[in-house]
Computed example of a mutant assay.
Amino acid sequence: MARTVTLSAAAVLALGGGAGWLVGSSALDAGTGTVVLAAGIAVTVWLVVVGSRDAAERPMERWRSRRLLRLAVVGLIAIVGCSALLGFTPYGELAVPLGFGVIGALLVPASSLLGDRTYLLLGAALLLLAALGAFLALNSVGQLYPRGLVGLGAGALLWAASAYRSGLVARLRGTHYR
């Protein structure tokens, strides 16, 4: 019998934050980057565990999950295709800001699809971070700004959204989210 794996929105956001943190820590020096990456892995695992506790409590309708999957596939194709094309140009350093900009842009329709405005705010914040990273990438040398700043910043934003979705922020304030 086939078993389905269910991930909550908080766990998906935590995994996205971990991916962003991985990209950002790769721009740092070897020793510092390893320590930052290890801390990021610990935070990601902790948020996935905390966020997965209520994954089966709120199932999503099949049509919503299909549309979300379609958005994810379109985003993945756009990120991979545009990053590959940017690699052939002198603007290859824009690949990371472009990738997180695509994720931010796709969170806007996902917000209305899921009926939660926090995704709209997260998408707007990721778009602003991507624009800032692209601006800094074009005006600087090296990978610290386009990869480090954007990756670590996006990771922190996605982790904050995961903590909010999992109810950690509400628990710290003494209220309940849901």
Rank of each mutant, 00 (worst) to 15 (best):
M1C: 15
A2E: 14
R3P: 04
V5A: 10
T6L: 13
L7Y: 12
S8Q: 09
A9D: 01
A10K: 02
A10L: 06
A11C: 01
L13A: 12
A14D: 07
L15T: 06
L15C: 01
G16H: 01
G16C: 08
G16R: 00
W21L: 11
W21Y: 15
L22M: 09
V23G: 08
G24H: 03
S25G: 12
S26P: 04
A27M: 07
A27P: 06
A27V: 09
L28F: 12
D29H: 13
D29E: 07
A30R: 15
T32N: 07
T32I: 03
T34A: 15
V35M: 13
V35E: 04
V36G: 14
V36D: 15
V36I: 10
L37V: 15
A38D: 14
A39Q: 03
G40W: 03
I41A: 12
A42E: 13
T44I: 10
V45W: 11
L47C: 03
L47K: 04
D54F: 08
D54L: 12
E57V: 09
E57M: 05
R58W: 05
R58N: 11
R58Q: 06
M60P: 10
M60W: 11
E61H: 12
R62M: 06
W63G: 00
R64M: 14
S65K: 03
S65D: 04
R66W: 08
R66P: 01
R67I: 06
R67A: 00
L71R: 07
V73F: 01
G75Q: 05
L76V: 11
I77S: 05
I77C: 08
A78R: 11
I79L: 12
V80W: 07
G81D: 10
S83H: 02
L86H: 09
G87A: 09
F88G: 15
P90L: 03
P90F: 01
E93V: 09
E93S: 06
L94Q: 03
V96P: 09
P97G: 03
G99P: 02
F100L: 12
V102C: 11
V102S: 05
V102I: 15
L106I: 01
V108A: 02
V108F: 00
V108N: 00
P109M: 11
A110Q: 00
A110C: 01
L113E: 14
L114M: 04
G115V: 01
G115T: 00
L122F: 01
L126K: 01
L128N: 11
A130Q: 04
A130N: 15
A131Q: 02
A131M: 15
G133C: 04
F135G: 05
L136Q: 06
N139L: 10
S140H: 11
G142V: 14
L144V: 14
Y145D: 07
P146T: 05
R147S: 03
G148Y: 07
L149I: 09
V150A: 11
G151T: 05
G151N: 02
G151F: 06
G155Q: 03
W159F: 06
A160G: 10
A161T: 05
S162N: 01
A163W: 09
A163C: 06
R165I: 03
G167S: 10
G167I: 06
V169K: 02
R171S: 15
L172A: 11
R173A: 08
G174P: 13
T175E: 12
H176A: 15
H176E: 08
H176I: 02
Y177F: 11
Y177M: 02
R178A: 14
